[in-house]
Amino acid sequence: MAVHIAECGNVYKDIVHNIEITSFASTGTLSIAPYVEGLTSDEGEYLDEAQRCLTVNALRACVVLGWCATIARIHKKIEEVGFDKFSQATVEMAGKTTGRFKFFTKKQSIQSRSELQTVFDTDLLWVLEYLQLIDNNQHQRLRHCFEFRNNSAHPGLAPIRGPNLYSFYSDISEIVLKNEKFALAPSH
Score class of each variant (00 low, 15 high):
Ala2Cys: 07
Ile5Met: 13
Val11Ala: 15
Val11Lys: 12
Asp14Asn: 15
Val16Cys: 09
Val16Met: 08
His17Leu: 08
His17Gln: 10
Glu20Ile: 06
Glu20Met: 07
Thr22His: 06
Thr27Pro: 02
Thr29Arg: 00
Thr29Cys: 07
Ile32Trp: 03
Ala33Gln: 02
Ala33Trp: 00
Ala33Lys: 05
Val36Asp: 04
Leu39Ser: 04
Thr40Ile: 10
Gly44Ala: 09
Glu45Pro: 12
Glu49Leu: 09
Gln51Thr: 03
Gln51Val: 02
Cys53Ser: 12
Thr55Gly: 03
Asn57Gly: 10
Asn57Thr: 01
Asn57Leu: 07
Leu59Pro: 05
Leu59Thr: 13
Ala61Ser: 14
Val63Pro: 05
Val63Arg: 08
Trp67Phe: 12
Thr70Ala: 06
Arg73Thr: 03
Ile74Gly: 05
His75Ser: 01
Lys76Glu: 00
Lys76His: 00
Lys76Gln: 08
Lys77Met: 01
Lys77His: 02
Val81Met: 08
Phe83Arg: 08
Asp84Phe: 05
Asp84Lys: 08
Phe86Thr: 04
Phe86Tyr: 14
Ser87Trp: 01
Ser87Phe: 02
Ala89Trp: 04
Ala94Ser: 15
Ala94His: 08
Thr97Asn: 10
Lys102Ala: 14
Phe103Ile: 08
Phe103Leu: 12
Phe104Ile: 04
Lys106Gln: 13
Gln108Glu: 15
Gln111Phe: 01
Arg113His: 00
Ser114Arg: 05
Ser114Val: 00
Glu115His: 09
Thr118Met: 08
Phe120Pro: 00
Val127Tyr: 02
Tyr130Gln: 10
Leu133Ser: 07
Asp135Gln: 10
Asp135Arg: 03
Gln138Thr: 09
Gln138Ser: 12
Leu142Val: 06
Arg143Thr: 02
Asn151Asp: 15
His154Lys: 02
Leu157Gln: 11
Gly162Gln: 10
Pro163Tyr: 06
Leu165Phe: 05
Tyr166Ile: 03
Ser167Thr: 15
Tyr169Glu: 13
Ser170Met: 09
Asp171Gln: 04
Ile172Tyr: 04
Ile172Ala: 11
Ser173Cys: 10
Glu174Arg: 13
Ile175Ser: 07
Leu177Tyr: 05
Leu177Phe: 07
Asn179Ala: 12
Glu180Ile: 11
Lys181Gly: 15
Lys181Pro: 06
Phe182Asp: 04
Ala185Met: 10
His188Ser: 14
